[in-house]
Computed example of a mutant assay.
Amino acid sequence: MDQNAPPAEPAYRALALQTRTEAVNGLSPAEAREAMAASIARIGAEVAAAKRWVGPDLRLVVLPEYVLSGFPMGEPIERWRDMAALAPDGPEYEALSGVAASEGVFLSGNAYETDPNFPALYFQASFVIDPSGEVVLRYRRLHSLYSPSPYDVWDRYLDLYGMDAVLPVARTRIGNLACVASEEILYPELARALALRGAEVFCHSTSEVTSPALTPKGIGRRARAIENLAYVVSANSGGLRGIPIPGDSTCGGSEILDFEGRVLAEAAGGESIVAHAELDLAALRRTRVRPGMGNLPSRVKTGLWAEEYARHDVERPNGLDGAAPERAWFTRRQRESIARLTDDS
């Protein structure tokens, strides 16, 4: 674990902002850009109101998954890239940076994103923008069933960006921040790798079904917090609008968990700022250096698992040559991985 992190601020508050998603499906590229700009303006007003409500010690705001666009519903890769993917230096990021700077918060969110080195593709990216308006973390989602990921163009991606960009951790004055996108909370390897790199707070942008019963992702959040002695700030959608799927299918349950898996705050359904709580980084750091059975990260046998994982051939890297695939390619890839798992068992 990272012992060279910057000194933590006194305890501060984080917010999982449960705001609605206005889907851009069916719009022209120009109309989609206008809709996303309107969503950023609305979110900016909500962040400003939340800071007045929660208080001046609100320092971290996490937004839901693909909050500006919704998700593709069969659109070809090329069309979704053109209508819904943000350029890393484009106007949408500039506007989001303005929100963070205006309200003096670290703003984390998730969007589809283009990359000039892979012009035919898009990636799903999670980001953190600091109070100066600088993007201090950009994470491209690695586990994605129906979208391209860096693993699909692995060798070239590593040559261009290196492993630190694949598994980024932002060292900030509110702690070491990392992003986990949506269902990736179900993959313990990702969160553990980020924690080994020093991550103390997982910013979890998600858009998921909720239930009165504990869901798989709800279990995953608790497990990742306990396993890694890390806070989890998880923002779910406050409803989907603009597509035929019933709007409250992914709505509610935004929550903040402490480093022992306890729920500090949780929102019910609808748009909400209820999921805010205090994060005490000093207490977390004391716990991480305290010997005992509960210090799970210190007991990980990394060499053992590295050797065992290397024996198994599941999802393979470099499946794409940089060209935009047909949507059917993603299903075919999964079937091939299932076949290899079956043969291996």
Rank of each mutant, 00 (worst) to 15 (best):
V274D: 09
G238P: 05
R13H: 09
T331F: 09
G261L: 11
V169N: 07
P246I: 00
K51F: 14
V136D: 10
A84K: 00
A38Y: 02
A14N: 08
P116A: 14
L17T: 07
I185P: 00
S345M: 14
S298E: 12
W154F: 15
S345P: 01
P56C: 12
R52T: 14
P188N: 11
R33E: 14
I273D: 05
A45Y: 04
N4T: 13
G253Q: 04
P64H: 03
A87E: 15
I245P: 00
K51I: 13
V62P: 03
P119N: 05
V24W: 05
G239V: 05
D155S: 15
R138F: 07
G70F: 01
R224T: 12
A265F: 10
H276V: 14
G238I: 09
P291W: 13
E31K: 06
V62M: 10
P7W: 06
R241T: 13
A328P: 00
G109F: 08
D82M: 05
G44E: 00
R42F: 02
Q124W: 00
T250Q: 01
N4S: 13
G26I: 03
A275I: 12
S345K: 12
E307F: 14
R316T: 13
R197Y: 09
R81F: 01
A84I: 03
G44I: 00
C251T: 04
V54N: 09
Y93C: 01
R141T: 12
A84H: 03
E307M: 15
L229T: 10
G269I: 12
L320T: 11
G247L: 04
E134N: 07
R13G: 07
L177M: 10
E278F: 01
V314T: 12
T250R: 00
R156N: 05
E22D: 14
R20D: 02
L63N: 01
E307L: 15
